[in-house]
Design a protein around this nucleic acid. Structure first.
Lengths: 215, 215
DNA sequence: AGGTGTGAATATATTCACAGCT
DNA sequence: AGCTGTGAATATATTCACACCT
């Protein structure tokens, strides 16, 4: 079956596509035109069968006996991830974390453009950083809508993250990346991804404790 | 079967434990002594069956007809995650992101203590921030060992992340949380977790594209 | 020969549904 | 009566192994 419909691509495959894309861009920048599943697997920390299975959901992109054309894979995956045109992003909460994200080189490289910043601090509102204006969070409903912002990154303290989310949702944001360690309640059509570094540390801590205990 | 052995707790359950712990601490701070699976599920964005199944791996912690004692759950989960005593953490790369993490309130609250900072910038090496000293990355093998650091958080640019990892691995770090968008190669016994915000944005972007396409 | 594409087999995770305590 | 604990059923994900194309 040629997996034409994006709806029947497994979630686990989708989660790996950005990783593949990163490795493929690296190969391309090194001038590598063709790649085999086992090589790509090595670069991504995966395995050859997984790679082939994942790509098979995107269509028959490879050539038997040869491998995959790097540029064709990049094309297909970028298309699928919806990052061929730039996605417009806002950062809510312009403290240390927010400003670190604003300067993060990985975003523009991968098709994400920060087009607005939000905070509540009067000392910051109205300023521009690197050409991007800081608006008061109260203006988010209007600004998000006017600038056609798709995704908000929430980098506020946990206790105000829900208010921040409400404001950008009112403006019509379609997805939220939440860096505040709290669960957001949003309408069903808004997609939220939670990033919690403490959670990651705790998972690592578990595995350390497990190793220590087993000795 | 009473799941005494940590080794047979499913990975997916482990990944949810920090989330449960956060909600339980919140309940405790509100003075709630007892919680039922459905209530906790509501707080965590899960469902009651999942909660009960997850907890069943930790032992029989609940009381039928009544629910779970909040303090007992906190005790068990903290124990299991190995965060009852503080875990010693280093931050490698003390730019905006590194310093944002250093100030992140969630770490001390959850048992993680930042005890050393590393960078290569001569302007930073030797300084102390918030009582914590910045060492040169070259000193990491010694310092990590001397301070008994368990976990390193890598917040360097991607191109030097592997060097940073090599240095802390040499010092005997047991786990790495990698915020640089690159895959690290480390010895098998060192556990790495990758956080990549671009990846998260791309996954959100896919789901937006999918919604848009379906209309 | 040397690789992909993919059904079949296996492993893992989630959900259901109800027996078993309190 | 009410809620946990858990086998059984289902769904999802990974891995195997080989037919099939170049």
């Amino acid at each position: 079956m040629t997996g034409r419909n994006t709806a029947d691509i497994p979630a686990s495959t989708i989660e790996r596509l950005p990783q593949y894309l990163r490795c493929l861009l690296e190969l391309q920048s090194m001038g590598v035109p063709l790649v085999k599943s086992d090589r790509l697997a090595g670069l991504c920390g995966s395995n050859a069968a997984q790679v082939r299975k994942d790509f098979s959901y995107l269509g028959e992109l490879g050539t038997r006996g040869i491998g995959y054309e790097v540029s064709a894979l990049i094309e297909h995956i970028s298309e699928l991830l919806g990052v061929k045109e730039r996605r417009r992003v806002a950062i809510v909460g312009y403290g240390k974390l927010g400003s670190a994200l604003h300067g993060y080189a990985g975003f523009p490289e991968r098709g994400f453009e920060v087009v607005a910043l939000f905070d509540v601090d009067p000392a910051k509102v109205g300023c521009t950083f690197d050409g991007i204006r800081v608006f008061h969070v109260d203006e988010a409903p209007r600004v998000v809508n006017e600038l056609g912002i798709d995704i908000a990154i929430i980098a506020t303290p946990a206790r105000v993250a829900q208010l921040a989310a409400d404001a950008v949702v009112e403006g019509g944001v379609k997805a939220i990346l939440n860096l505040a360690p709290t669960r957001l309640v949003v309408p069903e059509e808004v997609d939220v991804r939670q990033v919690c570094l403490s959670t990651d540390l705790q998972i690592l801590s578990f595995r350390i404790a497990q190793q220590e205990g087993s000795r």
